[in-house]
Amino acid sequence: MAKTRSMHIVVGSACLLLAQAFTPLLSAAAELIDLSGKAAAFVTLRSRDNFSSEYRYDVTVRNNSADLFIADSLIIVLDRITNIGGQDRENLTGESLLNRMEIIGQDGTTEDGRPFFRVPQGSGPDLTPNSESLPVTVRIRNRDYVAVFTPSFRVMGQKREAPKQKSPAAAAAAAAAPNKATTDKLIQLLIKKGLITPQEAQSLSQP
């Protein structure tokens, strides 16, 4: 009895640790925005293992907009899989073809149950306009040995907000600050040399 209770505690603790490990990934994906229309995923088939019916793809993200996207926020979501006829569900059962595939090495799952992969960060902090990311390796195992299928991805991430422009008044004040400091030093030098009195210096310091 005690042994059974100990096993329950171990299993429960393991489940809790797994939940804590995957929660940040789920919450991170939930905070991202859909970049469809601004960023596109390009899919290249790299290899195919006929024995295990496993397909290996390289997927890159291209920034087609004028915005900057934060590089380490980008993910690709495996949105659907279509057959040779362009359908994403089985004819007889209506089941999603995506559910019939085994996705290997995914980084997490979105709130609607779709697998996602993190895009590797390049040399810079952002994916700049008209640039392309490093490739993500995606492995899909076809349980039903369908002859031809096509994976489709959408891109999610965060846009880099442009720095706020200073108001004209703030810009003028910032430019005037060094000039005032220089003037004050000159006045102190004139007082020290006895060329002007402190009263005269006070009148000079007033705007």
Results as ranks from 00 to 15, higher is better:
R160Y: 06
S6N: 09
Q206E: 10
A147L: 11
K159G: 06
S6V: 07
I33M: 10
E95H: 14
D184S: 15
R56Q: 11
A30W: 02
N50H: 06
F116M: 09
Q206A: 07
T137F: 01
G194R: 01
S36P: 04
L98C: 12
V61A: 03
I9E: 15
A177E: 08
T82Q: 02
V138Y: 05
N91V: 03
L17S: 11
P151I: 01
A181N: 15
R143D: 07
E161Q: 13
M101D: 02
P24N: 01
A14F: 04
M101R: 05
R143T: 04
R100H: 08
K164E: 10
S52V: 06
T150L: 09
S123T: 02
Q106M: 09
N142Q: 03
P207L: 09
D58L: 02
L97S: 06
A66G: 13
G105N: 11
G12F: 01
V10Y: 10
R5C: 11
L195A: 13
N64Q: 12
A21K: 12
S13K: 15
R89S: 06
A175N: 09
E54I: 05
V146W: 07
S52H: 04
G122C: 09
E111S: 15
N64P: 14
A201W: 04
I76M: 02
V11A: 02
K193N: 10
I70E: 15
S47H: 04
T109K: 00
P120R: 00
K3G: 11
A171D: 14
S123F: 10
S27R: 07
S53M: 13
A147E: 04
P129G: 05
M156L: 02
N142L: 04
E54R: 14
P163Y: 00
N50V: 10
A29P: 14
D72S: 05
P178C: 02
N83K: 03
L78T: 00
L35G: 06
D144I: 03
L97R: 06
S203L: 14
M101F: 00
V59H: 04
L26T: 13
I196D: 09
T183D: 12
K185R: 12
S73G: 06
L195T: 12
M7N: 14
P129R: 07
